[in-house]
């Protein structure tokens, strides 16, 4: 097995055995989504209009909430040293770690979006477009959040700091994503253009974030 596959397999095993991140992710996502009818309105019409955008924000916050330990365990137990020492392509190791996180935490959240959508009275026609737009924006979510996780590696209470550091970077993504979903709700069709922009944003994140993370981790 290659070095890179070994890292993905190990991180998935740890994630499965610990279960913390998966359970916390599910719990956090569920709580935020269930707060919407309480905080805004239980009126079905109002809910169906605001819920798609809200679902997207809830997904983003869940990512930020669960990613703070992405590099911390390897840093604390010394494994990170050997990954830096032994691999000339440390950036690929970083991509593997983020991918393992995406598989273990983000993908299950995407899978439960249809259930959440039904709970929030989102129209059946919108569920697939919402899932698709969240799916293609998820690489940007996790790779940008991973930069925050690396930047706050040696700090206590890093979870809150990640949000402060990283949330502004999501502003373009939030504007494009929410406008795409909202325009779909009111019938304006710029969906495919927004999808392309978000896909571009995700690709740029995948291409640049590993180098930034590598720089930060090596300097630690």
């Amino acid at each position: 097995m290659s070095t890179y596959l070994a890292i993905i397999k190990r991180d998935l095993m740890i994630s499965y055995k610990e279960g913390n991140n998966i359970a916390m992710g599910f719990g956090f996502f569920l709580v935020i989504v269930s707060l919407l009818p309480i905080g805004i309105s239980a009126d079905k019409d109002i809910l169906s209009k605001v819920a798609p955008g809200f679902l997207w924000i809830a997904f983003l916050l869940t990512t930020l909430f669960t990613i703070s330990r992405l590099f911390k365990d390897d840093y604390m137990d010394g494994s990170m040293d050997f990954m830096i020492m032994d691999s000339s392509i440390f950036e690929i190791i970083i991509i593997c770690k983020v991918f393992a996180y995406w598989l273990s935490v983000t993908l299950p959240l995407i899978i439960i979006i249809p259930i959440m959508s039904v709970l929030l009275n989102i129209s059946m026609d919108l569920i697939l477009p919402i899932i698709f737009i969240i799916f293609i924006s998820s690489p940007a979510f996790v790779f940008i959040a991973a930069v925050g996780s690396a930047l706050t590696l040696g700090m206590e209470r890093s979870g809150l700091l990640i949000n402060i550091l990283i949330l502004p970077l999501y502003i373009p993504l939030i504007i494009i994503g929410i406008s795409a979903i909202s325009n779909n709700v009111i019938g304006i069709n710029n969906y495919s253009f927004s999808v392309m922009l978000i896909a571009g944003f995700s690709m740029i994140s995948i291409a640049l974030s590993p180098f930034i993370i590598s720089l930060v981790l090596r300097s630690n």
Binding site: R10, M13, I14, K17, E18, D73, M76, D77, G78, S79, D81, F82, M85, D86, S88
Partner: peptide, 16 residues
């Protein structure tokens, strides 16, 4: 790439 190091941090995973 030819070096290996054993330090105070053991680089083993308690969950595994």
């Amino acid at each position: 790439h030819l070096c290996n190091y054993s330090g105070h941090k053991l680089a083993i995973k308690n969950d595994l």
